[in-house]
Amino acid sequence: MSLALDLALCGLILCVALGAVVGRGVFRSVIFFITYGLLLAIGWARLGAKDVALAEAAIGAGLTGVLLLTAHGRLRRMSVERAPRVGPNPMAATTGIAVALALGWAWFALPAPTAPDLAAALPLTGMGNPVTGVLLHFRAWDTLLESIVLLAALLGVWMLARDVDWHAPLGLRYHARPGGVLASFGRLLPPIGLSFGSYLVWAGADGTGGAFQGGTVLAAVVLVAMMAGVLPPPRVAQGGLRAALVVGPGVFLLSGLLAVALGMGFLTLPPAVAKPATLIIEVALTVSIAVTLAVLVIGPPDDKEPVR
């Protein structure tokens, strides 16, 4: 019975992906991609990967979706010409099918699973959730670099601003009718989202959640508040914004260097202080992730769209 469930779910996932690729029109593609993220989150839940399901629901279905939707809206107005309509492409189809078949073959050729033994080392980290343990302890270097990758992407997006707009507030000028549905919603969501996002960070140590998932929910709150005109978008020159961007990776990196100064290895957290230290790092990371993701989606400083 559960096999039937998985088959139905995977069938839906494939249909949606197919719709995103072969369907005509960019908007249809974008909408299919949003539903794809949703269904994929359910798929991760079926695989027993709760933390991944949470990340996919927040990032894949939520943020990437709104990123593509707003971009599509702007492209529709700014583009001179439509993308040329394309027919089926046999060469591309052959390549895609060949890679898919190769991966399928590789699955059946996999040797028996071997996994590193986490059970012995996990208690030393003070984390009850093994995924958080891997992210913030065993593979802390990955996680630190990853938080900096977000920053690099943001710098890249800011570099796309025009020079004349550089000192303007970030993104387009959002406004909403005072007292309207959107403005009210912009006031309603933040308290709910704030408490939920903070809960996710707190729960991440032992249960489902974590800094990235919590930070994404908080970013969504900030975005809705900005789009509803409740929260004015910041400027690049604002020191508070820039401090918030770097506090997470900064605290993480400094804790790693502090450990070196104290004669332990880089990024080492001794078991005695592992749990509180991890929590501090996670809170700082959450702040940075929330702010970085929100301004990443809002886009570079931009004054007015050209009318074509």
Binding site: R46, N89, V99, A100, L101, L103, G104
Partner: peptide, 17 residues
């Protein structure tokens, strides 16, 4: 799930090209 993953990769490659 693995076969779905492999097919998604194939679909994505098609779309990309």
């Amino acid at each position: 799930f693995a076969m779905t993953g492999a097919s998604l990769v194939g679909l994505g490659i098609y779309g990309l090209l």
